[in-house]
Structures are given as structure tokens and as C-alpha cells.
Write a protein that binds this DNA or RNA. Structure first.
Lengths: 150, 150
DNA sequence: GCTTGAGCTGGAGTGCACTCAAGGATGTTC
DNA sequence: GAACATCCTTGAGTGCACTCCAGCTCAAGC
């Protein structure tokens, strides 16, 4: 279909750096990369879509290791459909849990913002800040990923 | 009020490791740590509450640097009320944005899970996977924090 | 045919947030 | 008073996910 292209364009179109793309490939996250006569990597539209998916998963906290697993599964195509689905479903569950966790945290943050607002308006510290005898050790904290500093 | 305690108990009650607590202190995230006769750190109930707040903020992606800033502001008490509020409000905004981002990603993930389900049921790849000509470069990606591997 | 620009490889370096280890002091229990 | 737990400090090490660099090749434009 549409003409293929080199790494610079892929980088521009996906928002990742060239180095990151090469590094991802080395990590096994980018299947089907051809080379042209001059040994340069050649990409297709599919790679753009794939990197977009990768990005979604990364941004919702999937580690490179898990992404590598998932990529390996998709490489097996139909044969590993069940596993692909399971892996994604599990990730979806983690995402739901994290959203719940963040939503809860947001409530606390907003309460504290209100508390400050009160304090400023009244000139003196309001009686109750629901500093919440809440969260127990919460050993099983939700995970969330690091993002590039971009 | 309630008797004070040492670092081991604080660690147990907040779910952080002893090393982390000492490291946080060195980073300027824990004000008002007294010492007993034997130079051991002494904590109060307030420290438990404070660490819980810190934890909330950390888990919603606030960096140590920002936490340090916030801590410094609270150390100034009333004098920096406005800044404390602004910092927290800004963070709340980021949290809201991230939740929105994650929610959007979740929709894609679930769509893909359904897609796999279809594929498995029908035995052949369904026509449309809204592989979504969606997300543009998305240079301004939402940030999210790293979590301890715990 | 030479400059310019994009891409290549391999490997070292970075930033963040811990985490661990060594060697020692102090406190508590029997 | 000996054993053991708990705490102390300093400094080094870890894991993750990039990011940068040196030195090179290749292709295209003028």
C-alpha cells in the first residue's frame, strides 16, 4: 500500500525517539522489521499502529518485560490467541484497579485543597482535616509506570 | 498523646521499609524527627499520617523532588498556605488527566480483548479491529510514577 | 566527486527511587 | 553479663527504561 519508510519517519509519527525504537527492537518489542539494500530498517504502516498500541500499554504501566512477552505471543499468531487475550485481560484488570486507586487518592487531594482553601479564608486552621485514619499499610500498592521526561 | 515510637514501628505501620524512611528523611520529606537518648529517631502519630499522605502523592506520580518542595512549604506553615494549596491543586489536575488517559487506554485494551474473544469463537480473524487511527504523536503524554516492586 | 544527512553498531552513561551491606552502638531480656 | 534485637551511619549497588556518543557506512543532491 502506502510506501514504506525509515526509522526517522517512524520516530516522527509515533513520538518516540529513534534510539528508543532501536532499543525496543533489541528488546524484542518490534517484530517484522525488514532492511533495505543499505541495511537500513524499513517500516510499514503496521509498525505505526503497533507502536501506538505499545505506547498505550506502556503508558498504563506495562513493563518492557511484559511487553516482550506479549510481543512474543503475537508472533505466534493464532496459536497463542488464548494467551494473548489472557495477558491483555490481566493488564486491563490492573488498569482498572489503578484507576480506582488514583480516584480514591484524588478525593483525598481535593479534600486537602479544600482544607487549605478554608484555612486561607478563615485565617485559622479548620477543625477537621479528614487526615483520614485511612490507608493501612497497603502493602499491595498499585503499580504505575514511569514516563519519559518528554 | 499516644506514646511515640521508633523507626521499626513506623515502617510496619506505613508499609514502607526502614531504609526508605531514613532515605526519605535525608531527602527532606520528613520534618520534625526527634532523637532519643541513644540517638535513635522518635516518631509520633503525626508521622504516620504524614507518611500516608506522602504515599498517596507518590502513588499518584508525584516525584520525590516535588514532594520535597511540598514538604518545604508545609514546614513554613501558614506563611506558605497559598503555595501549598497551589501545588496540591496542580497535582490533582495531573491526576485527573492521567485518570482520563488511562480510562481511554482501558477502552482500547478491552476492545482488543473482545477482538481476541471474537477471533477465538469464530476461528478466524474478525474484520475490524478498531486498531484506531487514533493517538497522534501524543507528544504530551501523561506522566505516571514508578512503583516499588513490592 | 564531494558534502550533507540519515542511518548503522556497540557500548557507556543517566536519572530516579530505592535497597543492601559493613561495622558499630544501644537497649532489653534472661 | 551475655545474647539478641533494634537502631545507627556511610557508602555502594540495583533495576528500569531509556539516552548519548564515537566512529562508521550509505545515499542523494548539487
Amino acid at each position: 500500500m502506502a510506501r514504506d519508510f525509515h526509522i526517522g519517519e517512524l520516530a516522527a509519527r509515533t513520538g518516540r525517539s529513534i534510539d528508543t525504537i532501536r532499543w525496543y527492537e533489541k528488546q524484542g518489542l518490534i517484530p517484522g522489521v525488514a532492511r533495505d539494500a543499505g541495511r537500513r530498517r524499513v517500516y510499514t504502516e503496521n509498525h505505526v499502529a503497533w507502536l501506538d498500541l505499545i505506547d498505550r500499554l506502556r503508558r498504563t504501566g506495562m513493563s518492557i518485560a511484559q511487553l516482550r512477552e506479549y510481543t512474543a505471543l503475537t508472533r505466534q499468531g493464532k496459536a497463542a490467541l488464548k494467551e494473548q487475550r489472557a495477558l491483555l485481560a490481566a493488564h486491563g484488570q490492573r488498569v482498572r484497579e489503578t484507576i480506582a486507586d488514583w480516584t480514591e487518592a484524588l478525593a483525598l487531594i481535593e479534600a486537602k485543597v479544600d482544607f487549605y482553601g478554608e484555612w486561607m479564608r478563615k485565617g485559622k486552621r479548620p477543625a477537621v482535616m479528614p487526615h483520614h485514619r485511612a490507608s493501612a499499610p497497603k502493602k499491595e500498592a498499585k503499580k504505575a509506570p514511569r514516563r519519559r521526561t518528554a
